[in-house]
Design a protein around this nucleic acid. Structure first.
Lengths: 312, 312
DNA sequence: GGTAGCTACTAAATCGATTAAGTGCCCGGT
DNA sequence: ACCGGGCACTTAATCGATTTAGTAGCTACC
């Protein structure tokens, strides 16, 4: 069992003693507290002593005093972690927060269980992704949803550009992704309406198989059956591709398939899956800035690109 | 931006006042501090006041005093998160820690950047998975590696049971999984030696393609080319299956393939991948108990089962 | 009858950093 | 000669829980 810190802590008092000043002065210097007049040479002496001793402020003590610690908690819940957008969002946030002396804690646990976590880390800000996605006016919240709107437009756009006019939008049956799915559906409908394509929304059922769902897509009576499927995410696309093999259908001729939020498996799959690649790193940086109360400045949007492969 | 706690905090002093005792007494009661003699009715009064006011101890204050918070940090690093073992390990740890009033923080970030995290959360224990896997005598450490030994035996055993006597063990070329790969290789070699099978260890090269690797497996001169591949993980197995399609080889007749640490994609793939399913939940519970210094009791081992599918 | 020892508590120190409220000292103005 | 005020700091309070060192009051034993 590894023990955390056997080394004796260097406190602010040690630094104060070494620099020949009081602890308060050390705090003023190291935090650049505004409204404090200090002799430049004192500042130098304090800083020298601090780095000499390798002083690291005890963040728990600081958090106790300040009321919250310099941490941002990102609640991810049971959101699908297959795509690259979440990891890249996290990477971006982490990098930016690090730059400002903050740290990121990512919670994948179920929401009911995170009371301890919340209490124990006393985050400066909590970003609850499932909650954001689930809220109806998610669009109003600083760009979270605008991005998804653009990416969804990208996804459907790719199919429409290739001539598809009747498209099925398939979402999984999963309470964890309900909010996000609803959001995506709304955006997909907007795009379809604008570009004069017919959109059919299909929710996978836990009872019926994907094969049955696909069969139902093409009843004899239906005049214009969908020629393409836009999936909620790559995993949904894989499930569809898998069922297509069972049916003897081939992509893209019998049915084109496009995934969303491209993950590492898209290129590996047979046939290789066309998907929408979302680079959320820059977006993560901006989310981080907003979270700690800094102005992220102007913004044009998260870039997303469609990587065309075998299934479209 | 959601602010964390606008509600005024109920402190131990509030409880003390309400119960007509001192703060110290409240602490003694609520923590069942040994060596303290308290009248039962006082205990009742204090507990009543605490729950009446909805008192929750401030964990930062407690952590400051105790030197570390009741948190366990699990460092996962860049370990592959595809399989189910890691999520189930995490779920098990989380459940058990929760039960003892601890919380789990999982860090996926790179090791260099987690100083802030470490400092900010001051964990009671740090479990550094990559480091554990990388250490040469990992076997000695409370069962982490024993499990992998058993699962690897299970993986190779499945192939040997089906008559394969010449097996290739394929590991990815990835510094992040180096330590774990080395460990697995050692166990695989042990099993092969015990069960009189020939084992060839192949590391995928970043320059050569998987197709080339497969071709090299069957040179004309070689007397007993491998008839089966045991992969480091499911993703490696997918890469192999993908290359086999390009070569026109079929599993299992031309080459049998078995994955490891079954993830959700194994069943979806065509052909469906045989893999080793690892349920690490119970193991996670035990790891949690050890982490907080409790005795997990006797143990027989993490169960793992091979789900036979099309590729073997 | 003195004191040792127990019960049932309380007062105060402590963890380490932040910050409001001082405290000398010197300078300028009247 | 006296006072206001800025400079350059220090003292002490504070965040909230834990824990050591007491302190009454009572019993019991030699």
């Amino acid at each position: 069992m590894p023990t955390p810190t056997p080394a004796p802590r260097v406190t602010i008092r040690d630094v104060a003693q070494a620099a020949g000043v009081s602890a308060a002065t050390v705090s003023f210097v190291l935090n650049d507290t505004p409204g404090q007049t200090l002799r430049p040479e004192t500042r130098v002496r304090v800083r020298a002593a601090a780095s000499e001793l390798g002083y690291q402020p005890h963040r728990l003590a600081r958090a106790l005093r300040e009321g919250s610690s310099r941490l941002v908690l990102l609640k991810v819940g049971a959101l699908p972690a297959t795509g690259r957008s979440l990891p890249s969002l996290i990477a971006g946030m982490e990098a930016e927060l690090h730059h400002h002396g903050y740290a990121l804690v990512v919670s994948y646990g179920d929401p009911g269980r995170d009371t301890e976590l919340l209490e124990a880390v006393a985050p400066h800000t909590v970003l609850d992704l499932p909650a954001i996605y689930a809220s109806p006016e998610a669009t109003a919240d600083g760009g979270w949803a605008e991005g998804f709107a653009a990416h969804t437009a990208n996804q459907l756009g790719h199919l429409i550009d290739r001539g598809h006019r009747s498209i099925a939008f398939v979402v999984p049956h999963d309470p964890a992704t309900r909010g996000l799915a609803r959001l995506r559906v709304r955006f997909a409908q907007d795009v379809a309406a604008q570009r004069h394509a017919a959109l059919r929304v299909v929710e996978l059922s836990p009872s019926a198989s994907v094969v049955e769902m696909l069969r139902a897509l093409r009843p004899a009576a239906q005049s214009t059956p969908p020629t393409a499927v836009a999936a909620f995410d790559d995993d949904t696309a894989f499930a569809i591709l898998s069922a297509m093999v069972d049916l003897g259908w081939r992509a893209p001729d019998d049915l084109a398939v496009i995934g969303f939020d491209e993950g590492p498996h898209a290129a590996l799959w047979h046939p290789a899956l066309t998907s929408v690649r979302i680079e959320a790193e820059e977006f993560g940086r901006r989310a981080a800035l907003r979270a700690i109360g800094l102005d992220p400045g102007d913004w044009i949007g998260t870039p997303s690109t469609v990587t065309p492969r075998a299934t479209t």
